[in-house]
Write a protein that binds this DNA or RNA. Structure first.
Lengths: 121, 121
DNA sequence: CTGAATCGCTACGTCTTTCGTAGCGAACCG
DNA sequence: CGGTTCGCTACGAAAGACGTAGCGATTCAG
């Protein structure tokens, strides 16, 4: 059960159509949930939303000084999924990544309302 | 940096307004990105979308036999954030959790198109 | 009542992922 | 040349996730 070691990719790459951590089907949504469910993935997309290109080091600083090894892992992953690209002036979202970025903006709006209704606020 | 050990919650609870792993601001979106960025969080919401109540054990099976300790951790977390609730007939999304569930349905539709445009497919 | 089946959940040792620091080689600028 | 920035990697330590086993509570059958 949930055995990363036997038939799934080595925790660094991920492709729709192929099985991923925690799902043997390879359905796109599962691949996406896997990728976005890894630490820092969502945050990286968040920091890149808006279209500005950012250098590796800028991005690292923006993500609360994430470890460079993990940042690189995630960037590889997201680039492999065509959500992020590296151009001459740094990292940026692809067209598809920008779609997700827009969804994160929605999520931000939603989160503000959500926070108001919570007991701890 | 990114030091969970000094001022952030002990990796089991999370509240908007209070700092979370990887963000000292406590902005709702950051709390949400933190929670959803932990392994299995998105998957659990995914499996609960649609409104059916599911027992702990059913949910576990649906999530590719996730470890019960992690499942319980995530359920505590998501309950603390008022996204999931435990009723007499099992776990279900709250009204707010259902909002997120709907977003995941959107994401599913998006992912299908996305997968078509990828080289590895 | 006893026994079986199910429930939510916890303990705990192992293994994987993430972290944090340090620093490399390349490119650019003086 | 030296100085600065770049993307990125190595590697030991810490945190997190995993998998198995099983507990106490409830429910139902006999």
């Amino acid at each position: 059960m949930a055995r990363p070691s036997s038939s799934a990719p080595p925790a660094g790459s991920l492709t729709p159509g192929a099985p991923s951590r925690g799902s043997r089907t390879g359905r796109p949504i599962m691949v996406l949930l896997d990728a976005l469910g890894r630490r820092w993935s969502l945050r990286i997309l968040w920091e890149l939303r808006g279209g500005a290109r950012r250098s590796f080091r800028d991005l690292r600083a923006a993500c609360d000084d994430i470890s460079p090894s993990v940042l690189n892992d995630r960037l590889k992953l997201l680039r492999g999924l065509a959500l992020v690209e590296l151009g001459p002036e740094g990292y940026a979202l692809t067209a598809q990544g920008a779609d997700l970025g827009a969804k994160l903006n929605d999520l931000d709006a939603w989160a503000k309302d959500w926070a108001k209704t919570l007991p701890g606020d």
